[in-house]
Design a protein around this nucleic acid. Sequence first.
DNA 1: CTGCTTGCAAAGGCTTTGCAGAACA
DNA 2: TGTTCTGCAAAGCCTTTGCAAGCAG
Lengths: 138, 138
Amino acid sequence: MDKHEIIKLLKSQQINPTRQRVDIAQLLFERPRHLCADQVMNELSDRGLGKASKATVYNTLNLFSEQGLVRELCIDSGKVYYDSNTAEHHHIYNVDTGELWDIEARRCPSEMVPNLPAGTTSVGVDVIYRVKPQNSYK
Amino acid sequence: MDKHEIIKLLKSQQINPTRQRVDIAQLLFERPRHLCADQVMNELSDRGLGKASKATVYNTLNLFSEQGLVRELCIDSGKVYYDSNTAEHHHIYNVDTGELWDIEARRCPSEMVPNLPAGTTSVGVDVIYRVKPQNSYK
DNA sequence: CTGCTTGCAAAGGCTTTGCAGAACA
DNA sequence: TGTTCTGCAAAGCCTTTGCAAGCAG
């Protein structure tokens, strides 16, 4: 996704495309990724991209998430990952190595979808398959 | 589950049944529950049960989790919940109110279980249906 | 004694907040 | 000039750690 498309994307969500926001969006949307705040900070400086302060990175990621551009991922407590793939999908997580893969969502037969509590409506479903190396002792 | 059973349960997992551990286990196993560390601390003092220090509560919950007596739940980042229901099951989480319900695991037809990455083996699957009140603006 | 537990306080990691200065329209 | 952002530092929350004192066999 080039800079022009990024700006269009941000504007489409009523997000003012400031330099920092565009830079962060470029990292996220160059391909489907899972990034946490400090990875964003590091990549910004490792590449030629302009830097952003910690506060701005957090603000921006929260903003993107509120606007539905990314999806917050709660894999293991401690830190939040932001998933730039907003299509419905599930995850496989290697608890030993931290690797995280997207997998296509398995569409369940309708009789397998649970009844939601009265008065509630669905916001989404998170499915995480946790795996470990076959010869791990954990 | 009475005190005697609790002690037997702990011993069965090679856990020395100290006073603090038994008290914490009683909270968890009186019925299927989802508790985080500070809730455990509060309940210990709110009821006649003997108190435990923060460090001990955390150590104990981690110990129980390592020994498979409880399951760590990562619902929203920030804090860890410990689920005393270790039977295979899924969850419904109300993002507005924080309510959390157990639901029976839907056993998927085998063709819906994803292929795991080569060299890995399954540790478990977490499924969380996120819901909100029907008239919430969130 | 010796090893395991506890509890306090300090340290640590991640995230949010307050606020002054900068940028932009 | 007014609004919106940014960035620094401080504060906040949850959790872990270091270590001395306590307890049990």
